[in-house]
Write a protein that binds this DNA or RNA. Structure first.
Lengths: 108, 108
DNA sequence: ATTACATATAACCAATTGGTTATATGTAAA
DNA sequence: TTTACATATAACCAATTGGTTATATGTAAT
């Protein structure tokens, strides 16, 4: 049971995930994209690994990170579901709103 | 920009929100529903207030808390959008994953 | 005015987090 | 086999979190 709130609860980690969305990246590439130290990045990567949002593999001296898209989707889905429960009735109209697209408030 | 990850990142706070979903509650009622101290509950309420997930009002000597549905709706909408982006950007690799990976539970 | 009760606040504690610097280790290239 | 580079790890720090107990404050009821 990965703690999605922990994993996604930091903006640096969310930025890392955005990077990995574009394709697998080495730790070096990730470190270079930020202004914080390599150990700091590594800690974020470790948290994402612990929560299984990303995977690690070795390529020579490089460590390659990749998104576990299915888990990330599941994570967001979990949060959405929780919020859905809170919203209850309001949700139906919201769902319609979202599915039909922004602000199409006029007749079809 | 309320930090919904922070707000929802604790199970006590999620339980409080579940309570408020059933209707507005006084702090006293909330405290009685948990096994932790009044100041601990108050801290959770403060975090939810900071992130504007709930509102506070005064009724005599009671403090009444209520859900901010609009903020939750906003968070919900944001997350949905993020998932859509995920799907768009990585459709190809997702397709590959599904085709070659664990989710291929049917024939060929 | 006193008392009782709901809430607020202060001081404390342990664990976690997000960062640092310094240094060790592993791998590749010279 | 050195050297260079990518990564890992250790020790440290400040801030935050989730809890505690003790006490102060505000409001209502007696």
């Amino acid at each position: 049971m990965p703690d999605v709130y922990r994993a996604l609860g930091d903006s640096t980690r969310r930025r890392i995930l955005n990077m990995l969305k574009q394709g697998n990246k080495s730790q070096k590439e990730i470190v270079e994209a930020f202004d914080i130290s390599q150990p700091a990045i590594k800690k974020h990567l470790n948290i994402l690994l612990e929560e299984r949002i990303i995977s690690e593999s070795l390529n020579g001296k490089y460590r390659i990170y990749s998104l576990n898209l299915n888990i990330l989707q599941f994570a967001y889905h979990e949060m959405l579901q929780y919020i859905e429960e809170l919203l209850d009735d309001q949700l139906v109209s919201l769902k319609n709103y979202v599915e039909k697209g922004e602000l199409r408030d006029e007749q079809d």
